[in-house]
Design a protein around this nucleic acid. Structure first.
Lengths: 194, 194
DNA sequence: TGAATAAATAAACAATCGGTTCATTTGTTC
DNA sequence: GAACAAATGAACCGATTGTTTATTTATTCA
């Protein structure tokens, strides 16, 4: 089993397809085709389909964490940071409606742990980043002195709800612009009055 | 094989799932589950899966035609009619990215005719409605005296392209608002200067 | 160049899936 | 409660698909 750039190409493709179709409806051959290779070749890079899924999710989480942190560091201003975090959360999590979907209507792909584990992990990572931004804002007197833990939870659930609505229940008519409006509202409430 | 309300419930559910996952990735059992029945029961209402797909598309086309015509009749003003047509085309066709998808990357589900037939038919119906609106607008001197056939073709391809971008290639970042902006631009060009 | 190693393939296997049928059960009507 | 309609779930069987492996193709480097 090799570990190199090709591995990450496979993860990226697998993520796309797993997110779009779910675990069962994505064939190993679909992933291979997308990369112009044969399915047998995939097995030089991964043990089996289930492992591939788990590694893919792990890769995605890792990837996202780095992406968001790098983006955030570009902005000095904490309000900007808040906006970038929101945007990236939406953009990135959108790639993974499957993580939400398994919680809603596809509860039986893996008997027990992996799905909850992954969801909980992405939850934790996201919430920690949100918390750090909130804390910074409060320290700088830009945000009101809110309960960081509670507000971070609220924010994250807003992200998730919008993604569920947009990707899992598109008939609800939710979209990115509504999401931005919602977040602006919260941000307005957060900002300390001078 | 029975014909009644249940039949249409099946079509509506089948449309949703076929549109979302495509023909192959949608199981007869998926459709049955969504309706809280067993897959065997589906076969009291349809001959086989392929027929179900074809009937579903036929039902969808019929349904859409009536929907759009009814909506359009509500508006007196031809510019309003144009906007409604655009909106409905987007909303409704969005349910059927599969019709676009089979043209792009899934060309082998049915060997030959049905896919082109369906696509051509939805094409024809749409274009005829667009044409009638354009003609009305020109007659009333609200629109410039453009070539109705050509403009209708252009408009329809704009609809299709946006739907492809939104649903088939979401990474392109297209959304409904961009679509509206694009259509407004065309409408502006259409409207006769006073 | 050509031997040695790595990467990719295509065919084959086995297990599961999933479309379809049908005998039986359940529900409805009169 | 008889007659009919609707729904079920088990069974059938061919197609699908995850996985393995022997073979072919590509790359490396002495």
């Amino acid at each position: 089993m090799k570990k190199n750039i090709k591995q990450f190409q496979i993860y990226a493709t697998a993520l796309k397809l797993f997110a779009k179709y779910g675990f069962k409806r994505t064939r190993v051959e679909d992933i291979a085709n997308e990369l112009n290779m044969t399915k047998g070749n995939i097995y030089l890079y991964t043990k089996d389909k289930k492992s591939l899924y788990q590694e893919t999710v792990a890769y995605a989480l890792q990837n996202w964490q780095e992406l968001v942190k790098n983006e955030i560091q570009k902005a000095e201003d904490v309000v900007e940071r808040f906006k970038i975090m929101s945007l990236k959360a939406y953009e990135y999590l959108s790639q993974m409606p499957y993580l939400c979907k398994i919680l809603i209507d596809d509860p039986s792909i893996f008997p027990l742990s992996p799905k909850e584990d992954h969801f909980i992990e992405i939850n934790k990572i996201s919430i920690n980043i949100i918390k750090s931004i909130l804390s910074q804002g409060i320290k700088e007197n830009r945000f009101r002195n809110v309960n960081v833990d509670v507000v971070a939870e609220v924010l994250f659930s807003v992200y998730i709800m919008f993604i569920i609505k947009t990707y899992i229940k598109p008939e609800s008519g939710a979209n990115m612009d509504m999401f931005k409006i919602g977040l602006d509202l919260i941000l307005e409430g957060l900002i300390a009055k001078k």
